[in-house]
Nucleic acid binder design. Structure first.
Lengths: 264, 264
DNA sequence: ATCTAGATTTCATAGAATGAAAGAATATTG
DNA sequence: CAATATTCTTTCATTCTATGAAATCTAGAT
């Protein structure tokens, strides 16, 4: 989580006239997530580049709402995020609609079907239905994954401008995903060719995993959701995976209707 | 989610000198969760009692951070809450420590073991390990439940002052939990007697469910976590449940150490 | 006990947040 | 399809909130 279109490195908030205090609060909140362990006030203030009193005041308000909790002098993400996540999973029209659709795709193909949403320069798994051979024992809902690697990420970049690819690469560097990072040109090479509406990947994001993905079309031309079929290498072939693409296309089409409010 | 100690009905934010814009943003965020469906700008502004421009500006910032998403003219909770929840579940020291402890309790007793945290005037399920007969098919992590009903809620109120009980009742009324609401005196009657460190309930929050709970002690004297054993009525008796209390006490003791930073 | 680093409060000031009102954009109705 | 009503968005002057420097308090270390 960071302002959806902030640029790469040093700049704090490119957004001009926009609620400084709220933006800063969100930065603190994001930093707490990034840290993955309780943080002291001074750590947060330094990491976010703001003064101690300001950071403290932000933390106090977030704590009032349960978004942050405190033990002794250290702060961490609070329990209020759980009902929020639950609300999202239960009520978001796209997620709700996706579940039965993914279910159907999974049954038809016998593969694991997943829905991702783009968030900033990453993607997030928001729904998954397992096929015959589940990929893992835990369900990694909410996991942040790179856009640059894996079929479901790359298909979201297929329609990106050169400028945007530059940002994506910069963000990946900043995020420390060093191994999965290339030059913009190199990245472009790995993306689906123009005219191709799906992406295929093998051993990319995770070794031993094959996947194909299509984007959920959006009128803007820049999709921010994708659906993927995934399988352990043992139980699938490239051809087998690609055979699932028409099914994926159909599913994506159905979902895309949800994104356009009414018909128009 | 609402300021942890706001009073009952009309008053907006009792907190005096505290980051008005941030507080208001959190109100908007809370309202979106409450609504359970996409909301229009004007609905949110009215519900939160703020002007349209202000509400719009808040939504835009939250949207930048993925906490809110928009389709056409309607706003809803955004996908950024998922990584936040995941971060909480994976990194919160209390939750992480609780998992193996609940596991042990569940094995020992064969019952479902749960950890709740108090948030405002509700409690939230933050961890659960099923025993022999699971209660449901879905795992209701993050579910908001009343404090006034069910063993795990009532044990958190056992140490509350009369004034606080009044607030709790008022909040329950405001939240619309009408059926589970009584007068403060009536509520006090239903709470564990002084000297009792556990609560027992039968058919209270959910019919056909028995449960016992103990609070996780806190130095402040006002616990905000509780752990419970729960079972369908078919497979348990009151005595059987209460036999689990010593096990619960031990578990609660272990958890409470986590709440006190260092020893002291 | 003394020192040091961090946390918290105070306070004056800058500038951000605010809502009224005007202006667009949609939706609704005749 | 025109006309009207509603909702959304932008602008802008004013107010009051958010801010950080500095002082104060607290706790941990030496």
């Amino acid at each position: 989580m960071s302002p959806t279109h902030s640029a790469s490195s040093a700049e704090e908030s490119p957004k001009a006239a926009n609620m400084r205090s709220l933006s800063r609060a969100m930065e603190v909140f994001a930093e707490l997530q990034r840290a993955e362990r309780p943080q002291r006030l001074s750590d947060l203030a330094r990491a976010c580049g703001m003064s101690l009193p300001t950071t403290l005041r932000i933390l106090r308000v977030l704590q009032d709402f349960g978004m942050v909790s405190q033990t002794d002098k250290s702060y961490r993400i609070g329990p209020a995020v759980l009902p929020a996540a639950r609300s999202y999973l239960e009520n978001d029209p796209l997620v709700v609609a996706a579940r039965p659709i993914l279910q159907q795709v999974a049954s038809q193909t016998g593969l694991t079907a997943s829905l991702y949403t783009r968030l900033g320069f990453e993607r997030i798994l928001v729904a998954r239905v397992d096929g015959a051979s589940p990929l893992r024992y835990d369900l990694p809902l909410g996991k942040r994954l790179p856009l640059t690697v894996g079929a479901a990420g790359k298909i979201l970049l297929a329609s990106a401008s050169e400028e945007e690819l530059g940002q994506v690469v910069a963000a990946a560097v900043a995020a420390g995903h060093e191994k999965d990072t290339f030059s913009p040109g190199e990245l472009r090479e790995r993306l689906p060719r123009p005219g191709t509406d799906f992406a295929y990947s093998e051993d990319e994001r995770a070794t031993g995993v094959l996947s194909v993905a299509v984007a959920v079309p959006h009128r803007s031309g820049r999709p921010s959701e994708s659906i993927a079929l995934t399988s352990p290498v043992e139980t699938a072939t490239e051809e087998g995976m690609k055979a699932g693409v028409p099914e994926l296309r159909r599913a994506a089409g159905r979902l895309s209707e949800l994104l356009e409010g009414s018909v128009y």
